[in-house]
């Protein structure tokens, strides 16, 4: 007697973003969350957390997206950044070879630091700067020196990155935050790849029968029902 009008179960998923400066991490998020793009986006300062829902046929995933903000520049991210992350987007700029090296470094770091079951997607961004962006799906070879002249700034072949992703068991996409190409697909693929078992239900109608776990009971909400400004009250 399934109630077809009942809301789909919803779960939150913590997703972290990693990658060299200026590869387009924040732009991918901006495209995904606001369907927007800014030509000269500033290095990320000030905003480093966003949420966005992703509707799957059988459930809703609410992404809690943690953008990096400064601490990654010298590989100084705090453990709290990785903790409980169920998904990671490791981004490189496919016009910039060093950015793939950096991406590989982050993948290794995630495998060392993050939860064992984390879903990692490797994303080559700025596809619009390559000649195959319009959909003429011709995979370019390595090291075309005249790439930019011919309107193709690609420096990292699809093949190279894809092979690496397969070896490491990563999801792999080439995207353009500018045109929006493949951006939603990345997040949907991640949502689908997260094992059902690792999804903790968000509080809500779908979760109300799950029972309150012991840890949930112990948890304290500092902005709870009590008015924290009522300074002189006392329990005694």
């Amino acid at each position: 007697m399934a109630d077809t009008n009942a809301p789909k179960p919803s779960s939150s998923v913590k997703l972290v973003l990693l990658g060299e400066a200026a590869v387009g991490k924040s732009s991918l998020v901006l495209r995904f969350v606001n369907n927007d793009f800014q030509e000269n986006k500033e290095p990320t300062i000030g905003a480093a957390f966003l949420t966005q829902k992703c509707n799957l046929p059988t459930r809703t995933i609410k992404f809690e997206i943690w953008d990096t903000a400064g601490q990654e520049r010298f590989a100084s991210l705090a453990p709290m950044y990785y903790r409980n992350a169920q998904a990671a987007l490791v981004v490189y700029d496919l016009t910039k070879p060093t950015s793939l090296i950096k991406a590989k470094h982050w993948v290794a770091e995630l495998q060392r630091q993050a939860s064992p079951g984390i879903v990692i997607a490797l994303v080559g961004n700025k596809l619009d700067l390559t000649s195959d962006s319009a959909g003429t799906a011709e995979v370019s070879g390595d090291g075309d020196d005249n790439a930019e002249d011919s309107g193709d700034a690609r420096k990292i072949s699809t093949e190279e990155a894809k092979t690496y992703a397969e070896e490491e068991g990563l999801l792999f996409f080439e995207t353009s935050a500018k045109t929006g190409h493949n951006v939603t697909e990345v997040f949907t693929a991640i949502a689908n790849a997260i094992p059902e078992t690792s999804l903790k239900s968000a509080r809500g109608p779908g979760a109300s029968h799950a029972g309150v776990s012991r840890t949930e009971e112990q948890r304290v909400n500092l902005n709870g029902p009590r008015d924290s400004h009522a300074k002189e009250g006392c329990a005694c």
Partner: peptide
């Protein structure tokens, strides 16, 4: 520290 980084501070361990 993360709040510091989000505010623009540079972190080096």
């Amino acid at each position: 520290c993360r709040a510091g980084a989000v505010g623009g501070a540079v972190y080096m361990l």
